[in-house]
Computed example of a mutant assay.
Amino acid sequence: MSDPSTASMVSTRELDRPDAAGQADPGPPAGAQPPEKPRSLLGDAWHDLRRNPLFWVSATLIVLFVVMAAFPSLFTSGDPINGALSRSRVGPSADGWFGYDLQGRDVFARTIYGARASIVVALLATIGTLLFGGALGIVTGYRGGWLDSVLSRISDVFFGMPFMLGALVILTTFNGADRDNSEYKIITMVTVTLVALSWPVVMRLMRSSVLAAKEADYVLAARALGASTSRIVLKHLLPNCLAPLLIYSTIMVGSFIGAEATLSFLGIGLKQPVVSWGISIGESERYVQVSPHMVLFPCAFLVTAVISFVMLGEAIREALDPKLR
Results as ranks from 00 to 15, higher is better:
Val139Ile: 15
Leu49Asp: 07
Asp106Arg: 08
Val120Gly: 01
Phe75Tyr: 10
Ile62Tyr: 07
Ala115Trp: 02
Leu124Tyr: 03
Gly96His: 14
Thr126Val: 14
Gly160Glu: 04
Phe132Leu: 15
Ala109Glu: 07
Arg51Lys: 15
Gly134Tyr: 04
Ser118Cys: 08
Pro92Val: 00
Glu183Arg: 11
Met68His: 00
Leu136Phe: 15
Phe159Ala: 14
Ala177Ser: 14
Asn181Ala: 04
Arg143Leu: 13
Thr126Arg: 00
Arg116Ser: 11
Val67Asn: 01
Asp180Gln: 04
Asp148Leu: 08
Trp56His: 15
Arg110Ser: 10
Pro53Val: 10
Ala69His: 02
Val121Lys: 00
Met161Thr: 15
Gly83Asp: 08
Ser118Phe: 11
Ala125Asp: 02
Leu165Thr: 13
Leu74Glu: 00
Glu183Asp: 08
Thr60Glu: 01
Val157Asp: 07
Val169Tyr: 06
Gly176Phe: 06
Leu61Val: 13
Gly104Ala: 03
Tyr113Leu: 07
Ala135Gln: 03
Ile62Gln: 05
Ala94Pro: 01
Ala167Met: 09
Leu136Gln: 04
Leu64Gly: 11
Ser86Asp: 14
Gly176Arg: 03
Val66Ile: 15
Asn181Ser: 09
Ala94Thr: 08
Tyr100Thr: 04
Asp79Asn: 15
Phe159Gln: 07
Asp178His: 11
Ala117Ser: 14
Val67Thr: 07
Ala135Val: 14
Ala167Gly: 10
Ile138Phe: 10
Leu130Cys: 07
Asp95Cys: 00
Gly133Lys: 10
Arg143Cys: 01
Val67Gly: 08
Asp148Ala: 11
Gly166Pro: 03
Asp156Pro: 09
Pro80Thr: 02
Gly166Ser: 11
Arg116Pro: 06
